[in-house]
Amino acid sequence: MKNLFGLLLLIVRRDLLLAMRRRADVLTTLIFFVMVVSLFPLGVGPETDMLRKMAPGVLWVAALLASMLSLGRLFSADYLDGTLEQMLLAPQSLSVLVLGKMASHWMVSGLPLVLMTPVLGLQFDMSVQAIGVLMLGLLLGTPILSMIGAIGAALTLGLRGGGVLLSLLVLPLCIPVLIFGTGAVQAVTSGLSISSHLSLLGALLVLAVAFTPWVTAQALRISME
């Protein structure tokens, strides 16, 4: 047990260290997110009523796209320099190793989006309460995006046009997350309870933690053949 945790920690620390040495990659995802969100008012007009209504959807879709963008790198760098081969040959649980990669991917590309949300929420004139719920939803939902996305990233490893293909595979699978995440914000703005939305997101997160690492590990073995 301690050994598995040690492996998880090793991978997370390694990936965070690599991300620190390659800060530009982290920033691009965040800037992309901010840019997409900021383009919407320019596209639909500045009426605050409409923007307030649209905000949760816009932020969630932008978060989805931003995480798709960063998923391409999840395994490809390790694939190209041969590290992934060594990971597959490590005499340790590949699922735990994959979970570590998912966790660090989220810390690098999901967490910054959550932290950026209040600023963008204010741009859309959202209430403080709505912003809070939106952040909570993103906090529960973005790890799921990283985990489902990892399956797609593993399946499309080394393929030409992998990035677009990855989105095609993963986006439909992420729809429930989008629905529950935006639903929570709409519930709170219309004075309803948010607990069912958030507990469903929580349930999805638990399911994702339980199954996606193993599925991703299988996908990696298939792709490395």
Partner: peptide, 17 residues
């Protein structure tokens, strides 16, 4: 895997580290 080691064409080392 615990008893074998593979060294392939690729060095499996990270440029940044």
């Amino acid at each position: 895997f615990a008893e074998m080691m593979y060294l392939g064409h690729l060095n499996a080392i990270k440029d940044e580290l």
